[in-house]
Simulated assay, not measured.
Amino acid sequence: MIWLWDLAAILLGPVAGSFLGLISLRLPEEKPVVMGRSACGSCGRTLSPIDLVPILSFLVLRGRCRSCGAAIPRRYLMMELGCLALGVWSAYAFDGPMALVSALFGWWLLILAVIDGEHFWLPDRLTLPLGALGLIQAVAFFLAGQSQLSWVHNLIGAAAGFGALWLVAFAYRRLRGREGLGGGDPILLGAIGAWVGWQGLPSVVVWAGIAGLSVVLAMVVRRRGVSAEMKLPFGVFLALGGWMVWILGPLGL
């Protein structure tokens, strides 16, 4: 029955995406994530089950409310499709419970990337539990005999990930007299280290650096203004790096 875990990772993807789309809107506005039954943001009509089927409802309703015709934010569809893709990827890369755990890691990284990309903010209420869950899954799979590496590697990864970026941020602040990294970036790298272990941290940073440089080069090619003062959401690149290392393993550095 191992295939049931793969199926769960795939089928729960759109459901998770719908919920994460809601979080991406409400959390930055400091609104309660759970506010009773879902309702249309324009006319206030309580949504029925037929309105809430991930992906399918959006397509059938052509992205509009059945009552008032107001546009449904496309982020819901994008998040649902993104989480579905991450679920499929996890089911392809892993078997058994690890497939669902992998999908959960991917969904978590996705919501962090979206929030940081839009608001330059990595909320502790998301990054800290992600790190705790990474350590829990490492201990659980090690005790179950499904992991050859001790969970101590993950614990070291959490400490090393946070400590390394914190020192970089501290040194930059002392040398330049201003912030160079957001306060959530070290916490996020520490959380990722809790998942990939200390061995995977260098590769995470390499992937993040490649992604960041690619964005800068794309901006240069499009002749958009690039300066030393420009801010980039580094958490987005760290999330991408964490996922690539989780799926593909550390680079042969």
Rank of each mutant, 00 (worst) to 15 (best):
L175N: 10
S24N: 08
P73M: 06
G21E: 03
A99I: 07
R62C: 09
L248S: 13
V206I: 15
D51P: 00
W5T: 04
G17D: 04
L143F: 14
G69S: 09
L81W: 04
M35E: 15
L133D: 00
I247M: 14
V215F: 13
A239S: 15
S57W: 01
M230F: 03
Q137L: 11
L133P: 00
W121A: 08
M35K: 13
R75E: 12
R173L: 14
I50R: 13
F170Q: 10
T46C: 04
V101G: 02
D116G: 10
L213K: 07
A191T: 03
A70R: 11
L181I: 11
L135I: 14
P129I: 06
G163P: 01
G225P: 03
W107P: 00
L253I: 15
V114M: 10
I55R: 04
M78D: 03
Q146S: 14
C83G: 02
G161R: 02
V60Q: 00
I10C: 05
D6L: 05
L52S: 10
H153V: 03
Q146P: 00
G200S: 11
A218H: 11
P186W: 08
A160W: 05
L84F: 09
V15H: 01
L27G: 06
G177I: 07
L175G: 08
I156W: 09
I115M: 10
A99Y: 03
P14T: 10
G241I: 08
P49T: 02
R62P: 02
A228Q: 14
F141I: 00
F58H: 09
L52M: 13
C68L: 06
L240A: 14
Y76Q: 00
G163N: 07
A138V: 04
P73H: 10
C43Y: 10
R178H: 15
W198D: 09
R45S: 12
G249M: 13
E29Y: 02
L232C: 05
W207A: 06
Y76S: 00
E29W: 01
P14V: 05
A164W: 14
W151T: 01
R75P: 01
C65S: 11
E80P: 07
P73I: 05
A140N: 05
P32M: 05
F105L: 15
G197E: 10
G36C: 07
A132Q: 02
W198H: 15
